[in-house]
């Protein structure tokens, strides 16, 4: 059982604040670190893996500082985002070298076991430079698992993987989580995170936006006010009919765009209400477009919440 504790951590680069006063504890099981690109996820993972010092605050593993403490690597396995990994070595040589560097008693056996876990024995004699993205990711996993670590940190592990590779990796991570290991992975895709992680930490613009069960995060994301742009055969009559219902919070008639800007309170309610009202009033709908569905806007809503 191992816990990484991030306590009041900030990190800035010159004038840019990458991580702003974040506190969180990552315990056994799978945790998803979710946020848009550039939110500070990698900065956090770099600090958790000892490759970056926090500007203020502390990052510890079971109470021991991680920065400038090589002994933590006996417990941490790191799967970095970058792909370069001595491409002149074969998969076997690469994983074996990692086992040797850990000073394991039987590096050969450890390398065999790790390659078996990620099901890469079939390609272990090929140079890693010839691997596909998914294969590289799995060999990187094997190198991180070779010393049977209690903590596994993965920076954007699903990037560039095809759906089948994605499922395989998810299955593997699920097994580690079920073993009681502490698994943390970052991603900018909500669906990916909620498929895998029971616990989610959301980071937006360097700040800790939300934390908790994936259902809670999902609710936060779907229950926020949604904005739609609607064009119809009779905008004003449609507006009048819609405002009578509780799931609509506000409607603006945009004369220049010749459209309605509608703010819905309840996502589910509004999407069933709109076509029903239009049909009853005999109004044709030409355009129904979500005005703020980008992930960034969803995240920024979470920050302000």
């Amino acid at each position: 059982m191992a816990t990484i504790t991030i306590d009041k951590v900030s990190r800035w680069f010159g004038n840019v604040v990458a991580v702003n006063d974040i506190s969180m504890a990552i315990g056994p099981g799978i945790t998803g670190l979710l946020g848009p690109n550039g939110a500070g996820k990698s900065t956090l993972i770099h600090m958790m893996s000892g490759f970056l010092a926090p500007s203020t605050g502390t990052v510890t593993l079971d109470g021991a500082p991680i920065w400038r403490n090589q002994q933590v690597y006996r417990q941490i396995g790191l799967v970095p985002e970058r792909e370069s990994m001595y491409d002149y070595l074969t998969g076997w040589e690469f994983v074996l070298a990692n086992a040797e560097l850990h000073g394991l008693a039987d590096p050969g056996a450890a390398a065999r076991r790790a390659l078996g876990l990620v099901e890469m024995e079939y390609a272990q004699d090929r140079k890693t430079g010839t691997y596909s993205k998914g294969m590289k990711q799995r060999v990187k996993m094997a190198s991180a698992l070779v010393h049977d670590p209690a903590v596994l940190l993965l920076d954007e592990p699903f990037n560039g993987m095809d759906p089948r590779q994605r499922l395989q990796l998810m299955e593997l991570l699920r097994r580690f989580g079920a073993d009681g290991r502490t698994v943390l992975f970052s991603s900018h895709i909500l669906e990916e995170v909620e498929q895998l992680a029971r616990h989610i930490e959301v980071v937006v613009a360097g700040r800790h936006a939300a934390s908790g069960d994936f259902r809670k995060i999902r609710r936060l994301m779907t229950d926020r006010p949604h904005r739609y742009l609607v064009r119809s055969s009779d905008d004003r009559r449609l507006a009048a009919a819609l405002i009578a219902d509780g799931s609509t919070a506000g409607i603006e008639v945009d004369e220049r765009e010749r459209a309605l800007r509608i703010q819905a309170v309840n996502f589910q309610g509004f999407t069933t209400l709109l076509p029903r009202v239009a049909r009853q009033a005999g109004i044709r709908l030409y355009t129904v477009a979500p005005a703020d569905e980008s992930l960034e806007s969803v995240f920024s809503y979470l920050v302000s919440a």
Partner: peptide, 12 residues
């Protein structure tokens, strides 16, 4: 190229 990570993430 970042591959130094594999040497440094070790208790060496």
């Amino acid at each position: 190229d970042g591959s130094i990570v594999y040497l440094l993430a070790k208790p060496l």
